[in-house]
C-alpha cells in the first residue's frame, strides 16, 4: 500500500467558539488532483490551510507523506518545503523582483547557491511563460501574471504536492484561463494537487476527485464527472444549481 500524500482524520478546527471544521476525514493519493468546492464559510480554505499548518488544527491528525504534522516534534519548515502553496491574493513579495521572489526561499531554506537558484527560478519562469519578466516588480504585473509567478515560486522549491487556495478568484475573468492552463499542465505532469476552487470546468476536466464541503463537513465526494452531473446529496444539488 502506498502512503497517501495527504491523509486527514477526524480534523476539527475552531476559531474561538466558532467551529469551522467538524470532523473531516479525507485523503489525497500521490499524483491525484483533488478539487474542493463548497459555499463560502464552508471551511474549505481552512481545511487547505490546516494541511501545511498555516492554521493550527484544534484536534485530529494530518499526515503528509506519512509524517504527522500535528505532532509538535515535527519539523514544520521541512515539511512545508515539500508542500507548495498558492494563495488567492498571490502574496508575492512586493519589495523583490520576480527573480528574487523565486530565489529567496531556495537560498535561505534549501541553501542553494545563487547560480543554481537562479537556474531553477528561470526554468520555472519559462514553464509559466514569464521568462521575460524576471526583473519586473510584482506591482508591474497583471493579476494573472502575478499568480503565475506565485506558482513558479512554489515550484522552485521542488515540492511533492501543491495546495491552491482559490487561485483564480481574485483575477479578472479574462486572466483566469492562463492560470488554469498552467495548473492543467502541472496536473498532466503528475503533480499531486489539492485545489479549493469555484472553477467547475477545471474540476470536471482535470480533477480525479471532487469534494463538496458545507458547514464544516464533507457532504459528498467522488469522481468529479459523476458528482457534478448527478449529485446524490440535497445540499450538493442546491449548491451546484446555484453555481452551474
Amino acid at each position: 500500500m502506498t502512503t497517501a500524500a495527504i491523509h486527514v482524520s477526524d480534523l476539527h478546527k475552531s476559531f474561538g467558539k466558532n467551529e469551522v471544521l467538524k470532523g473531516i476525514d479525507f485523503h489525497v493519493d500521490p499524483g491525484q488532483v483533488v478539487c474542493v468546492i463548497g459555499p463560502s464559510g464552508s471551511g474549505k480554505s481552512t481545511l487547505l490551510r490546516c494541511v501545511n499548518r498555516l492554521e493550527e488544527p484544534s484536534s485530529g491528525q494530518i499526515l503528509v507523506e506519512g509524517i504527522d504534522i500535528t505532532d509538535p516534534e515535527t519539523d514544520l519548515d521541512d515539511v512545508r518545503t515539500r508542500i507548495g502553496m498558492v494563495f488567492q491574493q498571490f502574496n508575492l513579495f512586493p519589495h523583490m523582483t520576480v527573480l528574487q521572489n523565486l530565489c529567496i526561499a531556495q537560498r535561505t531554506v534549501k541553501r542553494r547557491s545563487k547560480k543554481q537558484a537562479i537556474e531553477i527560478a528561470r526554468a520555472n519562469l519559462e514553464k509559466v511563460g514569464l521568462a521575460e519578466k524576471e526583473s519586473a516588480y510584482p506591482a508591474h504585473l497583471s493579476g494573472g501574471q502575478q499568480q503565475r509567478v506565485a506558482i513558479a515560486r512554489a515550484l522552485s522549491m521542488d515540492p511533492d504536492m501543491m495546495l491552491f487556495d482559490e487561485p483564480t478568484s481574485a483575477l479578472d475573468p479574462e486572466l483566469v484561463g492562463d492560470v488554469l492552463e498552467i495548473m492543467k499542465q502541472l496536473a498532466a505532469e503528475g503533480m499531486t494537487m489539492m485545489v479549493v476552487t469555484h472553477e467547475m470546468g477545471f474540476a470536471r476536466e482535470v480533477g480525479d476527485k471532487l469534494v463538496f464541503m458545507d458547514g464544516g463537513v464533507i457532504v459528498e465526494e467522488g469522481d468529479p464527472r459523476v458528482v457534478l452531473a448527478d449529485p446524490k446529496h440535497e445540499r450538493t444539488k442546491a449548491f451546484l444549481a446555484k453555481v452551474l
Binding site: R80, L92, I104, T108, A150, M157
Partner: peptide
C-alpha cells in the same frame, strides 16, 4: 499577514521571514 504566510509556506523559518520579508 499573507506575506508571512507566503514565506512560511515556502519553508522559511520565523527569523528568515522577519529579516527578508
Amino acid at each position: 499577514k499573507g506575506q508571512a504566510e507566503a514565506a512560511r509556506s515556502l519553508g522559511m523559518g520565523p527569523a528568515h521571514t522577519l529579516i527578508h520579508i
